[in-house]
């Protein structure tokens, strides 16, 4: 009986709010996905540099990145808000309360994690993998690329963690996105809103969808990792 009730409730729920829900899910994936792609484009090469090379200021840079790993989302949101607010230095762009500025806020949160975990993964493989590649005839660049390939599991873990950080945060996107219905509302901000309005069922469904999507994204990334064997 419970199952029948649940199914009928779900049917009713999706027929009433399915359109809005798909929009929220799509925007969440688009914002966090874009943030993680940009974060990876910035973070993996920087992590590789930190993991492979010793240069003046490296230790300081690592400490700053480790500090930024625990940057509170609401603080990241505040910084981005102040930059893109009408009176801020980039206010003329007029993108506050739009998805692009939400992406920027999440890039701030995901990039330090991707950088730090990539750097650690590459540094762990650096000595032996690099030397082995060189003994087999690799140039410095080819050997460095091999080290990055060898550290792929750790780098992917960094990207997954970065995605988790971006996808699950609420403070930054709430501040810079404004949680505007059909425009900047994502899964996490919807959960907050629905909970405040007493729509606990909807909030729980959104939470389950968020977890399910995280599971799917992680599975896809792990599949990529497994495919390294010929």
């Amino acid at each position: 009986m419970v199952n029948t009730d649940l199914l009928s409730w779900l049917w009713q729920f999706f027929s009433q709010r399915g359109g809005e829900l798909s929009g929220i899910v799509g925007l969440s994936l688009m914002v966090s996905g874009s943030a993680v792609i940009i974060g990876a484009v910035l973070g993996v090469p920087l992590g590789a540099l930190l993991g492979l090379k010793k240069f003046p200021g490296r230790e300081l840079l690592l400490r700053i990145i480790y500090t930024l790993m625990s940057l509170p989302p609401v603080l990241a949101g505040l910084v981005v808000y102040l930059i893109f607010a009408r009176s801020g230095p980039l206010g003329f762009l007029d993108i506050l309360f739009t998805p692009p500025v939400m992406v920027i806020a999440q890039v701030l949160l995901a990039t330090p994690i991707i950088t730090a975990l990539s750097s650690a993964a590459i540094a762990a493989k650096e000595k032996l993998a690099m030397d082995t590649a060189r003994t087999l005839g690799a140039s410095e660049r080819q050997a460095a690329w091999m080290v990055i390939k060898e550290a792929r599991t750790g780098i992917l873990a960094g990207i997954m963690t970065g995605f988790g950080r971006a996808f699950g945060e609420v403070g930054a996107v709430m501040l810079v996105g404004g949680n505007v219905r059909y425009q900047t509302r994502v899964l996490t901000t919807s959960i907050v809103l629905e909970t405040r309005q007493g729509n606990y069922e909807f909030a729980i469904v959104l939470g389950l969808i968020l977890l399910l999507l995280s599971f799917v994204v992680s599975s896809v990334l792990l599949k990529i990792d497994d495919s390294k064997l010929r």
Binding site: A129, T135, L136, G137
Partner: peptide
């Protein structure tokens, strides 16, 4: 030349790819 290091390191891929690597570099 080729050197086999004291702590032999295998690339985390197939045996075939490990052997092919040095040849591909050439």
């Amino acid at each position: 030349m080729c050197m086999v290091l004291q702590n032999t390191y295998m690339f985390d891929t197939s045996v075939y790819q490990n052997v092919a690597y040095g040849l591909q570099l050439r």
